[in-house]
């Protein structure tokens, strides 16, 4: 059976994540895999990978609890691909009590680390494991300000760590789902042995 990727579909840029993973599976020649929107806790154990999209972390955090999904995500044994708000949610600690993080990655994350929307930016940054640099889109982005021993930073800029891997999980301050470049999606799936 092909790989099953789910995108947490509570709020945020869900369709962009679905289409990026679909393009990635096609590029890897996987025509049996599928990418689905996930709205219920019972769907999560059936997945190989789960994406937590960009959006508002306060909103998604609240909806995870409203929809009783916290437990299923915390126990999930596949890989998690998290961008922006998703990265905030994966953290062990967040600099803001309005978000209740899942604590799945050993990192401290600062929300809106660059300021307001007018400070959102695009930049070409080097990422460990990629031959050529990556065109990264930062939108009211968070950064990791501290990490534990198991966490491996993949990209850092002045403000902090912006891409990070820990075991099966990967988290990004920026939005790989908004550009056509699927190298980070491939790296994530390969890391899961897919």
């Amino acid at each position: 059976m092909g790989v099953r990727v789910g995108v947490l579909s509570l709020q945020g840029d869900v369709s962009e994540h679905i289409s990026a993973f679909r393009r990635t599976l096609v590029s890897m020649g996987d025509d049996t895999g599928c990418v689905v929107a996930v709205r219920h806790a019972k769907e999560i154990p059936l997945l190989d990978a789960l994406a937590i999209p960009g959006g508002e972390s306060t909103t998604i955090s609240r909806l995870i609890d409203k929809n009783s999904m916290r437990n299923a995500i915390e126990r999930f044994d596949g890989g998690i691909f998290a961008t922006c708000a998703g990265m905030v949610l994966l953290a062990r600690e967040v600099d803001d009590t309005r978000v209740r993080p899942l604590g799945l990655m050993d990192m401290e994350v600062a929300r809106n680390a660059f300021g307001r929307q007018r400070e959102s930016f695009e930049a070409i940054i080097p990422v460990k494991g990629l031959e050529d640099p990556y065109h990264a889109i930062f939108i009211r982005a968070p950064v990791a300000t501290a990490t534990g021993a198991a966490a491996e930073p993949l990209a850092s800029i002045d403000a902090g760590i912006v891409a990070i891997r820990e075991g099966r999980h990967m988290a990004f301050s920026f939005h790989p789902e908004l550009t056509p470049d699927i190298r980070l999606h491939r790296m994530f799936l390969k890391n899961l042995g897919i």
């Binding site: 579909s9 709020q11 945020g12 869900v14 960009g54 959006g55 508002e56 922006c84 929307q117 930016f121």
Partner: peptide, 15 residues
């Protein structure tokens, strides 16, 4: 940029 502006709007979806 247009990508940043439209990207911001995309983050609001479902909200």
């Amino acid at each position: 940029t247009e990508l940043i502006k439209r990207g911001f709007a995309s983050m609001q979806k479902g909200g």
